[in-house]
């Protein structure tokens, strides 16, 4: 058996080929049944994780954008609210001023009217007074001269006196 020195080491063509074939078969089958599915799975998972991370990043970005949008909208709303308030204040101011002006105008008109009325009244009372005074004067004069003047004459005299008085008043 030990004719060949390699035999004593255990080397043999049959054993060598057998191990070669065993390994080859194992390589082939493992490649088919283990490495391919597992590598595919690992790649899939890596891809999935990458996608999830991307989606997460996107969602985060969107949230940030939405927040910015909200802040912007709030600021806009606040600004427009401020504007509305300002307008309202201005309008109120206008209304107040106009009302004041109206009131003042009205008051002026009333005062003016009252003055005119008063002046009119004064004039009327003055005329009345003159008439009364004239009547009184005529009556007194009638009494004094002892005869009563008929109404016609009396009126004539009064008118004359009044004309004179008026002329006096005018001059």
């Amino acid at each position: 058996m030990n004719s060949n020195p390699l035999d004593s080491l255990g080397l043999s063509v049959g054993g060598f080929i057998s191990q070669l074939v065993s390994f080859g078969v194992l390589l082939l089958l493992l490649r088919l049944f283990a490495y391919k599915p597992i590598m595919r799975m690992l790649d899939n998972r890596a891809q999935k994780i990458q996608e999830s991370l991307d989606a997460g990043e996107r969602a985060k970005q969107e949230a940030v954008n939405a927040e910015k949008e909200v802040v912007k909208k709030t600021e806009e709303a606040s600004a427009s609210g401020q504007k509305i308030v300002d307008q309202a204040v201005k309008a109120a101011e206008d209304v107040r001023r106009r009302a004041e002006q109206d009131a003042r105008k009205q008051a002026d008109a009333i005062i003016e009217k009252a003055r005119i009325e008063i002046a009119h009244e004064k004039e009327e009372s003055a005329a009345e007074l003159r008439r009364e005074v004239a009547d009184l004067a005529v009556a007194v004069a009638g009494k004094t001269i002892g005869r009563s003047l008929d109404d016609m004459t009396q009126k004539q005299i009064i008118d004359e006196a009044l004309k004179e008085a008026a002329a006096l008043g005018k001059s």
Binding site: L11, G15, F23
Partner: peptide, 10 residues
């Protein structure tokens, strides 16, 4: 068994 390492090495 020397055949196995030899097969792998080859």
């Amino acid at each position: 068994d020397l055949n196995t390492p030899l097969a792998l090495a080859l």
